[in-house]
Amino acid sequence: MAKLNMVQAINLALSQEMQSDPDVLLMGEDVGVDGGVFRVTDGLLEKFGEKRILDTPIAESAMVGTAVGMALAGLKPIVEIQFSGFSYLIFGQLEGHASRYRSRTHGRYHVPMVVRMPYGGGVRALEHHSESREALYGHLPGVKTVIPSTPRNARSLMVSAIRDPDPVVFMEPKRSYRAFREEVPDDPESYPIGKVMLVKPGDALSVICWGAMLRPTLQAVERVEAARKLAIEVIDLLTIAPMDQPALIESVKKTGRAVVVQEAPRTLGVASEIIAGINDHALLYLEAPIKRVTNFDVVTPFFARELQYIPTIERIQAGIEETLDF
């Protein structure tokens, strides 16, 4: 057991899975000699060599496209897209092939592949380095979209993603990369894709969040709980798609109130899908409308204005209070 930050935790997962499975290989821009621009792949080239840690040219579509070919031949490629803002070039390969090979051949072929990408704002980076576009990937049938929130679950979900038989888009909240440390077991540990994690139980209200929104959410919850002497349930979504709808419904049936916190813009976002699912299955249990605390439907501003747009502790707190007071 060691206290690791998220960068180290993901590195541990990559390293251990590559150690135990010779079919796993990793590719991307600057992942080798440089160890990745965030150092997530630091030291892997020395351990596994150039054949398994490939520094590729700057060609995102070809990285994912060649990974599809490798996966069809039975390898388990992991592709690092340096920033999610550069990932739109892979869309053709993901939607056109990676997501479809299993269905197209009724399971004769499948594409075990992980596409890692740092996403999200709050690190004062240049344009294209701050967006949360999980809804784009979550909307693709045949692709699993996963967002960890802490070092430990980043490690355990990465292990599952690598072992998964299908393409997994693994979005890493870069704001949380080095923000805090957590005890991470030395031995490989996995957490199932498609399952939420109950962060803390409660009965007054359910807050559902993911990625970098977990920490401000927990702080907002703490403030409300201290002021009002009640217990709020916090659920970390972890898998965007396929979503663990039963767990969300069960929680809301118990609490009768819900707030969804999303870093991404509001319209057609993951929060909307969560709420639609609750409305389908738990409408009569609701004591208040479900509140969305989200970014706004604007093009992500350059970083000077960025933090005013991403949900803050105060906005989350206000959303929770409004829902409790309804």
Partner: peptide, 12 residues
């Protein structure tokens, strides 16, 4: 779109 797959197969 199939051409990168060929390169991936070749690499494999």
């Amino acid at each position: 779109s199939q051409l990168p797959h060929a390169v991936g197969l070749g690499y494999a």
